[in-house]
Design a protein around this nucleic acid. Structure first.
Lengths: 91, 91
DNA sequence: CCTCGATCAAGTCGGCCTTGTTCATCTCGA
DNA sequence: TCGAGATGAACAAGGCCGACTTGATCGAGG
């Protein structure tokens, strides 16, 4: 399922009163808001769905799959997601 | 950041023309749509954000942290999330 | 057309995941 | 606005799953 299909689903649930353009704006706004929330509070919790959290990933040893040469992987940040109980049960 | 703050952020980005109640409906609709997309296609890709995917978790051996007793962990399903490049760079 | 993400290779170690209670926090009805 | 109900985080220890590395290529979205 891609973004276009997702927007269509959202527009259906919001009713025909809401245009697809509005649904798209809402989707983009939500995504942007989650990003801003992650940057600010490092965590965004959505009850009944799950929790997004910025995670610190330690430096470690890796390997270049092409040259088979060991390389140093620097510490980095990523975004983790832990599904909530409701979401787990629904899938 | 909780759901209420998130809704407020969304409403700001949508403009004052959109009420907070509408923003809340949009947020709920999007979440519900993602859930339905996961149940249907097992994967929801949002460009510029990341990808949600239903993952099959194999059965394995675990341990009860309280009794220190080995236990069998049954195979289960969970929802994984892989952040996209844009999201990684923003945090 | 241009950007963005998935994919593939192989090897490895970081961290996820288990149970169950306790506590903090959020949601929602009145 | 406040209380009641509900949801999730944290905590323990340890095993093994899988995310992660490069980089070119393909597909698709904007």
């Amino acid at each position: 399922m891609n973004k276009a299909d997702l927007i269509e689903e959202v527009q259906k649930q919001l009713g025909t009163e809401c245009s697809k353009a509005h649904a798209e704006r809402a989707v983009n706004a939500l995504i942007a808001s989650i990003q801003r929330g992650l940057k600010k509070d490092k965590e965004v919790q959505i009850v009944g769905f799950g929790t997004f959290a910025v995670k610190n990933r330690k430096a470690r040893m890796g390997r270049n799959p092409q040259t088979n040469e060991p390389i140093q992987i620097k510490a980095s940040r990523t975004v983790g997601f832990r599904p909530g109980t409701t979401l787990k049960d629904s899938v």
